[in-house]
Amino acid sequence: MSSNNTTLFCVEKTRLSQKHSYENNLRTITLIFLQVKLVGVKLRVEARVAKLFFETPIRNIVSHIKNLLQEPVNQGVAAVLMVGGFSESLMLQEAIRNNFPSLGVIVPNEAGLVVLKGAVIFGHDTSTISERVSKYTYGVSVYDYFDPNQHPVAKKITIEGELLCKDIFSVHVHAGQTLVVGQAQTKESYLPVDSEQKNVALNIYATLNLQPKYTDDAGCQKIGTVTVPVSGRGIDREVTVKMIFGGSEIDIECMEVATGKITHGIVDFLT
């Protein structure tokens, strides 16, 4: 009996809560209805009702900025530059100033056109951007010696008598890393796995994951392939790889160490 009474009480309490929620929503709808009127052929909306349309996006923007400012790469930020059409909203500007009183807030004239103008300027001169923060982690798919304590059996493969692990994500650039445009990033060295192969195929991958382990992990995407010719025989024919980030492309610079021969591969994000 006690158990049934408790269950009944919980059900009734839930119903009462739902009733109160319904009544509150009904009052809100009624209040809004009374403040929205048809005057002639025009719809008249009271200012306080119109402001309700912007509360959620403004709240989301403020929350997103707070999250960005928590990232180590953004420590020391002194100002917020507001661009885009919504940046011209006085409500948004007020919310940014109130939530970030220690930061300067810069709103250029014709903020809605700034992004368009910037794109046109960049199209004419890509050197206008000297540094950028990488959105993705970039790397190369490689083989490594198989370690049963670290690698899954499904990735074990035997090549020329050696037990290897395939699909290893060899990271060149981490997401969030600052990149100097036009300059090579970390140089990595690779060796062929077959003593008779004439080319080394380097598959380039990108992911939002900061520490990817395998190139077939969720979120990893193949974005290009560079084929590097190698001379001679053996598995000691070293190839070095560097990634050079430009305005809208990545130049994959590969060099066969023995001959000094350089092969370039381009990953173009505009095509």
Score class of each variant (00 low, 15 high):
113 L>G: 00
97 R>Y: 02
91 M>P: 05
69 L>V: 13
123 G>P: 07
125 D>V: 02
264 H>I: 02
145 Y>R: 14
218 A>H: 04
24 N>S: 07
150 Q>N: 13
99 N>D: 08
184 A>K: 09
112 G>I: 03
230 V>A: 04
200 V>D: 04
99 N>L: 00
271 T>P: 00
53 F>I: 12
219 G>N: 08
167 D>V: 02
213 K>S: 03
91 M>Y: 13
199 N>R: 05
145 Y>S: 11
231 S>H: 05
259 T>H: 10
124 H>W: 13
161 G>R: 13
59 R>V: 00
83 V>D: 06
50 A>C: 10
119 A>W: 01
161 G>A: 06
194 D>V: 06
184 A>E: 05
10 C>L: 15
5 N>K: 03
94 E>L: 12
69 L>Y: 04
231 S>Q: 14
193 V>H: 11
40 G>R: 09
143 Y>M: 01
59 R>P: 02
243 M>P: 03
104 G>I: 05
9 F>I: 03
114 V>T: 13
194 D>Q: 07
62 V>M: 07
98 N>Q: 14
153 V>E: 15
186 T>R: 15
229 P>D: 09
188 E>K: 12
27 R>A: 13
13 K>D: 12
231 S>A: 09
146 F>R: 11
142 V>S: 12
80 V>Q: 01
105 V>P: 06
23 E>Y: 06
206 A>K: 15
250 I>S: 00
231 S>F: 04
147 D>L: 09
199 N>S: 08
58 I>K: 03
57 P>M: 02
181 V>G: 11
212 P>Q: 04
67 N>C: 13
68 L>F: 00
215 T>V: 11
168 I>A: 07
143 Y>D: 03
10 C>Y: 13
124 H>M: 12
71 E>K: 13
246 G>R: 01
179 L>H: 13
248 S>C: 07
44 R>P: 00
11 V>G: 10
111 A>P: 10
2 S>C: 00
86 F>S: 09
190 Y>E: 01
117 K>D: 09
14 T>E: 15
121 I>C: 07
113 L>E: 14
100 F>G: 07
232 G>H: 05
108 P>H: 11
25 N>G: 11
219 G>F: 01
243 M>W: 04
248 S>Y: 01
197 Q>S: 14
256 E>M: 05
245 F>D: 08
217 D>K: 10
227 T>Y: 12
12 E>A: 09
80 V>Y: 00
35 Q>L: 10
89 S>K: 08
195 S>W: 09
269 F>I: 04
67 N>T: 12
267 V>D: 01
194 D>C: 03
209 N>Q: 15
210 L>T: 12
54 F>C: 14
8 L>T: 06
199 N>A: 03
184 A>V: 01
63 S>K: 15
130 S>G: 04
142 V>Q: 02
17 S>V: 08
123 G>R: 07
81 L>Q: 07
184 A>D: 02
122 F>K: 06
162 E>T: 08
142 V>L: 11
24 N>W: 01
242 K>C: 07
123 G>A: 03
252 I>D: 01
65 I>T: 05
154 A>H: 03
211 Q>C: 07
214 Y>E: 04
28 T>P: 00
238 E>P: 00
75 Q>L: 04
42 K>F: 06
221 Q>M: 07
161 G>L: 11
66 K>P: 01
55 E>Y: 05
75 Q>V: 03
199 N>Q: 15
11 V>H: 08
244 I>V: 12
237 R>A: 10
193 V>P: 07
218 A>S: 14
262 I>H: 11
179 L>R: 06
256 E>F: 08
194 D>W: 10
252 I>H: 01
